[in-house]
């Protein structure tokens, strides 16, 4: 048991070390959400007032939790996905002949991916004063818990896909046909309360929409923007997390 915990720790530590060593990646991965927030967000906000909608500031606040969710989505997915090439060419191949179980490798990878996602998410959260969104310590830590759940779910999803699909190109296709729709239909950029029916249906099977709904509820505390009660968000997230993690561990442990 102790051996397995050390295994989990080792896999986790390696991901964290690599993250902090790769400064360009940190900057790069923060550039996208900041661009979305300050360029796209500000642009849409001002056009909203042009078209006679509510005030721009409301939209930026609305979008803010969505951008945190976006950061978490991409960070954790790509970090889990690295398991594909790592397995063929890299360090992980070596790990696979050590006496550490596949499950520990998966757990270490999930924790590594979610730790990084929590760091990235926190950085975005710390930008909140710029948008005049008040965030207390309590809110910060509650959001962090949600980020953790979302990150594990998405990482596990990445590992499930990586175990099934082993080619790099197929992975790019998935990024386009799964990740982007997941992001667009998560309520990150526009409210899902009164869109067309099919979007609502799809968003209901999208785990990210529960994560973003939970963050929005915690950060803005505005019942009008809330899709589901907070407890439901958490129940759904925890269940999907557990199912995805088990599925990831099982599929990854399958020998080929």
């Amino acid at each position: 048991m102790k051996k397995e915990l050390i295994g989990v720790y080792t896999i986790w530590l390696r991901d964290i070390k690599r993250y902090f060593r790769d400064k360009p990646r940190i900057v790069g991965s923060l550039a996208q959400p900041i661009l979305f927030l300050f360029v796209l967000g500000t642009g849409i906000a001002s056009s909203l007032s042009t078209f006679g909608g509510g005030s721009g500031k409301d939209f930026l606040s609305f979008m803010f939790p969505g951008i945190v969710g976006m950061t978490v989505l991409f960070t954790s997915f790509f970090s889990a996905m690295s398991i594909v090439w790592d397995r063929e060419f890299g360090f992980l191949r070596e790990v696979l002949v050590t006496p550490i179980s596949r499950t520990s490798i998966v757990v270490g990878k999930l924790l590594g991916g979610s730790t990084i996602a929590m760091i990235q998410g926190s950085i975005i959260l710390l930008l909140s004063p710029l948008l005049k969104i008040p965030i207390t310590f309590a809110i910060f830590f509650k959001v962090l818990v949600i980020i953790f759940l979302v990150a594990i779910t998405i990482s596990a999803m990445g590992i499930v896909l990586a175990s099934v699909i082993k080619s790099m190109q197929a992975f790019q296709v998935i990024t386009n046909f799964l990740l982007m729709p997941m992001f667009f239909l998560s309520g990150a950029l526009f409210p899902l309360n009164d869109t067309v029916k099919w979007m609502k249906v799809v968003s209901r099977i999208n785990p990210l929409s529960y994560g973003i709904d939970a963050m929005r509820t915690i950060i803005l505390n505005n019942p009008d923007l809330q899709l589901y009660p907070l407890w439901l968000d958490i129940v759904v997230l925890v269940s999907v997390t557990v199912v995805m993690s088990i599925l990831g561990a099982v599929l990854f442990s399958r020998q080929d």
Binding site: K3, T10, L13, R14, D22, E88, G90, F91, V97
Partner: peptide
């Protein structure tokens, strides 16, 4: 095991590569 294809972590130092390996073998 010494694989035919490279299996080191490029972004870690030599000592770190050994350290992680040793941890995995307890």
């Amino acid at each position: 095991m010494v694989f035919q294809d490279p299996s080191l972590d490029d972004k870690l130092t030599a000592l770190e590569n050994l350290y992680f390996h040793g941890l995995l073998y307890n």
